[in-house]
Simulated assay, not measured.
Amino acid sequence: MDFFYNRSNTDTADDWTGATLVIVLCVGTFFCLFIFFSNSLVIAAVIKNRKFHFPFYYLLANLAAADFFAGIAYVYLMFNTGPVSKTLTVNRWFLRQGLLDTSLTASLTNLLVIAVERHMSIMKMRVHSNLTKKRVILLILFVWAIAIFMGAVPTLGWNCLCDISACSSLAPIYSRSYLIFWTVSNLVAFFIMVVVYLRIYMYVKRKTNVLSPHTSGSISRRKTPMKLMKTVMTVLGAFVVCWTPGLVVLLLDGLNCTQCSLQHVKRWFLLLALLNSLMNPVIYSYKDEDMYSTMKKMICCFSPEKNPDRRPSRILSTVLSRSETGSQYMEDSISQSTVGQKSSS
């Protein structure tokens, strides 16, 4: 790799030395430990608590598994960066980057699957989709098959080892054409998910406004579908914010932008991408009081007595419960609305 780094004039291998490298390793190690711990709790909570045995939560656990895998990729990157980068063999460098690409693809594909699941359920005015466990397992296997394949594409031949003039600057043995394909496909996936969730959000908002005058349900029950969509869109928004800057930098590199000073910002955008794996457990789990209490019991190794005055879950537990109260409410609301309209006519 020394030849390719020298040819690309990258300064990363020389800059990350001494105190800078120690700080990066310490901060990165802390972040990775938190990623391993928090995402392991999410997966364990979904397995342990029967309230979470629904397609949405299975996909949530798979997203946590993707974030856990991202932690592994970052650990391998930390101990194979800086001065070590130039000493790597081509195969080890491909492994380093392939792990990162696989983790990103796994998270992105899983979010796409969650978007489909949410669309299937919300458009049918239900809280949970009708996906069987077998189909959910097949979807999870599909997510990881796509992720592993995309991570292995450069190793399989889409690289610049046989055409040095096409080599990237940020990824010295990646072909610029591959970087363009990689970043454009991910940005298009971002756009598709944003459009899908905005469509669902507008649909739920419109239905809630139409049904509210014809129902006598509580305010919290009326806002239940909207709370769920706001939570899911928050997760998507965090993912887009954390990954888009890095993808744009890679796209500019693929377009051979020599005046963009990409070397000075790429490390910070990589750290921003790392933060996304920390944010997901907080957004998905801490805001769900049932999930939070389950994780707390596992940490503290005791089961506190239930507090009858404890308020319901802030975001998801009121929505994703076994009784499907929100779904029944929406279906009853439609019936009441229809009856009211017939009476008025």
Score class of each variant (00 low, 15 high):
301 C>G: 04
11 D>I: 11
252 L>G: 06
323 S>W: 00
106 A>I: 13
336 Q>G: 01
204 V>L: 12
57 Y>W: 14
166 A>R: 10
333 S>Y: 01
186 N>F: 05
197 Y>A: 00
309 D>N: 14
240 V>C: 12
339 V>H: 08
190 F>M: 10
3 F>I: 11
118 R>G: 04
195 V>I: 15
135 R>Y: 09
19 A>V: 09
204 V>H: 01
293 S>G: 02
337 S>D: 03
126 R>W: 00
31 F>K: 06
24 V>N: 11
174 Y>T: 02
15 D>R: 09
224 T>N: 07
179 L>I: 01
149 F>A: 12
149 F>E: 00
159 N>S: 07
282 V>L: 15
86 K>R: 13
80 N>T: 14
263 Q>S: 08
125 M>D: 15
301 C>D: 12
135 R>N: 09
182 W>S: 04
41 L>Y: 10
34 F>T: 14
83 P>F: 00
39 N>F: 11
333 S>D: 08
191 F>M: 10
79 F>K: 05
62 N>Q: 11
119 H>N: 12
217 G>M: 12
165 S>W: 07
338 T>S: 09
133 K>R: 12
53 H>S: 06
257 C>E: 10
69 F>R: 05
261 S>M: 06
47 I>W: 03
203 Y>L: 05
321 S>W: 01
194 V>I: 15
153 V>N: 01
331 E>T: 04
172 P>R: 07
338 T>M: 07
93 W>A: 10
237 G>D: 06
98 G>P: 08
177 S>I: 06
285 S>V: 06
305 E>K: 13
159 N>L: 08
198 L>G: 07
202 M>Y: 11
82 G>H: 03
90 V>G: 00
332 D>F: 05
30 F>L: 15
131 L>Y: 10
10 T>S: 14
252 L>I: 00
25 L>W: 14
244 T>P: 08
20 T>W: 01
112 L>N: 14
335 S>Q: 11
343 S>R: 13
75 V>M: 13
287 K>Q: 05
168 S>W: 03
174 Y>Q: 02
23 I>P: 01
188 V>H: 09
251 L>C: 08
119 H>A: 02
131 L>M: 14
320 L>T: 06
338 T>G: 00
266 K>N: 04
167 C>D: 05
239 F>H: 15
293 S>C: 09
82 G>A: 04
118 R>L: 03
50 R>M: 05
99 L>Y: 06
188 V>S: 04
339 V>E: 14
344 S>I: 00
18 G>E: 09
331 E>I: 13
281 P>R: 10
283 I>L: 15
275 L>V: 05
7 R>E: 10
91 N>G: 00
193 M>R: 10
203 Y>K: 12
234 T>V: 08
311 R>E: 12
94 F>P: 07
208 T>D: 11
246 G>V: 02
150 M>P: 00
221 R>Q: 13
62 N>I: 04
112 L>G: 15
163 D>R: 14
98 G>M: 10
284 Y>K: 00
221 R>Y: 03
4 F>L: 06
280 N>M: 15
